[in-house]
């Protein structure tokens, strides 16, 4: 980890550092990949970071807050991390890089959110199996091991897999 001198510290440098902060529940993706970083403001005496929770009740929020504080400690100025809801996080905020990292680590990325379509119809749209790529997959359960994941089964490779929910 490189300590950046205060004079050269800008928003881009802080955002790049936040790309090192992994999601505690899916460590293959960072909070930047997930689109959780809504705002970074570098003031002379403080760094302000506004994050959008993926789910209101996400139990990883405290861990994420301390991981952000720990990572930004390298910049040697106070860090103010806030979780806000004024922009609702949706799964459409996951970046293309984040979607690819999800797929490589065995999670199907979410389909585009269609608010006008019932949830069950959205979940039942073809999801590509992250293991073999087949679209012969079926929804097993809209609820999985964490709030943001659903469970599917692939008829081609006969493996269960998890998908990030459209939300």
């Amino acid at each position: 980890m490189r300590v950046v001198t205060q004079a050269s510290l800008d928003e881009g440098t802080v955002r790049a550092a936040l790309a090192d902060v992994a999601d505690p529940e899916i460590p293959a993706v960072s909070i930047v990949d997930l689109g959780m970083v809504e705002e970074v403001r570098v003031a002379a005496d403080e760094i302000h970071v506004v994050l959008l929770p993926t789910f209101v009740g996400c139990p990883a929020l405290d861990l994420i807050r301390s991981a952000v504080e720990a990572r930004l400690r390298a910049f040697d100025r106070p860090v103010d991390v806030r979780f806000e809801f004024h922009v609702p996080w949706t799964s459409d905020r996951i970046t293309p890089e984040g979607r690819e990292r999800l797929r490589v680590s065995g999670f199907a990325p979410p389909a585009a959110v269609r608010d006008e379509v019932p949830i069950l119809v959205q979940l039942s749209a073809p999801v590509s199996c992250p293991n073999c790529g087949s679209k012969r997959t079926v929804l097993e359960s809209a609820f999985g091991p964490t709030q943001c994941r659903a469970i599917y089964h692939c008829a081609a490779c006969r493996q269960p897999f998890e998908a990030f929910k459209p939300v």
Partner: peptide
Amino acid sequence: LEEDIAMSSLAQDEIGHAAA
């Protein structure tokens, strides 16, 4: 089993909403 997971997930959501 699926309902065990679903109800637990719903419960976690609601208690999270309550916390907020």
